[in-house]
Amino acid sequence: MSRREKSSGLTPQETTVMDLWDKGHGIGAISTASGIPNGTVRRIVRMYDAGQALDVAYAQRCRVASIAYLAAIAACGGRFV
Rank of each mutant, 00 (worst) to 15 (best):
A33S: 06
A33V: 00
A33F: 03
A33C: 05
A33E: 03
A33Y: 01
A33L: 06
S34V: 00
S34M: 02
G35R: 02
G35N: 02
G35S: 00
G35I: 01
I36H: 06
I36T: 09
I36R: 05
I36E: 01
P37H: 10
P37G: 08
N38Q: 11
N38M: 08
N38G: 03
G39S: 06
G39T: 03
G39P: 00
T40C: 01
V41G: 00
V41H: 06
V41M: 00
V41P: 03
V41L: 04
V41S: 02
V41C: 04
R42E: 08
R42D: 08
R43L: 08
R43T: 08
R43G: 03
I44D: 06
I44G: 06
I44R: 06
V45P: 02
V45L: 05
V45W: 00
V45R: 06
R46G: 14
R46N: 14
Y48G: 13
D49R: 10
D49K: 08
A50Q: 15
A50N: 13
A50F: 15
A50Y: 15
G51L: 06
G51H: 08
G51I: 04
Q52C: 10
Q52A: 10
Q52L: 07
Q52N: 07
A53P: 03
A53I: 00
A53N: 07
A53L: 10
A53G: 13
L54P: 00
D55R: 15
V56E: 14
A57P: 03
A57F: 05
A57Q: 10
A57C: 04
Y58Q: 15
A59M: 12
A59T: 12
A59F: 05
R61K: 13
R61G: 02
C62G: 09
C62S: 10
C62T: 09
R63C: 02
V64H: 06
A65V: 01
A65L: 07
A65G: 03
A65N: 05
A65Y: 03
S66H: 12
I67K: 05
A68T: 04
Y69C: 09
Y69A: 11
Y69H: 13
Y69E: 10
L70P: 05
L70E: 12
L70F: 09
A71W: 01
A71T: 12
A71Y: 02
A71N: 14
A72M: 11
A72D: 12
A72V: 05
A74I: 04
